[in-house]
Amino acid sequence: MHNNPYLPQKMRILDVYPQTDIDITYKVECDIKPENGQFVQVSLPRIGEVPISVSDFGDGYMEMTIRKVGKVTNEIYNLQKGDNLFLRGPYGKGFPIENYRGKHLIIAAGGTGLAPVKSVINYFYRNAHEVKNFDILAGFKTPQDILFKDEIDLWRSKFNVLLTVDNANEGWEGHLGLITKYVPEIEIRDLENVEVVIVGPPIMMKFTAQEFLKLGVPKHKIWVSFERNMSCAIGKCGHCKIDETYVCLEGPVFNYTKAEKLID
């Protein structure tokens, strides 16, 4: 068939970078040029297909960070360098990077929520002059769950990074507590020139957004990324629809003014 949108391409795994016991970053060889925050449909024949955010990309490669949670992701977990993944996409609308240029950018990410925004952070890491200030708030359940440790350390050299965990045993010397607790500590000088990106589990996004609103950040300066059950990623299967909005088409990234009206 001509232009079959469901037909994936075979892509070779160039490298794997274990992040935690259950999260692995896969670097695949590919020509796909995604926007920051878009996702792809990743599959293994006979096992199934799942939506996964692009966690980074560059010339001739793309990265995805995948958590082992079920049928398909368990099989992906066993793959090694040199094996193949099957990909179609990229899909959806990503983060509007152009809106963030010259602004005070704040990114608050919880857990795997760091994956879809990592390419945004790395973009500004490489082009640090394009943002005025940059605060990164990253929260994880425990120190063992921290993703992208090496990159977080790199980011610290240029930006204000606050890393926190919900719970930790003795020996953890970093911040403790939910992201929401640290939002009030961010100094926002100019509410008109701030942009806030919040990505994480639904509850985390809800309460973190409330904290920023309390600080006076206007709703239209807040951006979130949604996760929903998805099967087709092209507006046909209906699984991701909320009201008249298809998350796979108009999302997964939404401005808060839109997101707050999306009632499942």
Binding site: Y6, S43, L44, P45, R46, I47, G48, E49, S231, C232, K236, C237, G238, H239
Partner: peptide, 8 residues
Amino acid sequence: SCFTNSDI
């Protein structure tokens, strides 16, 4: 018109 894709 909804559907689910799956592999067997």
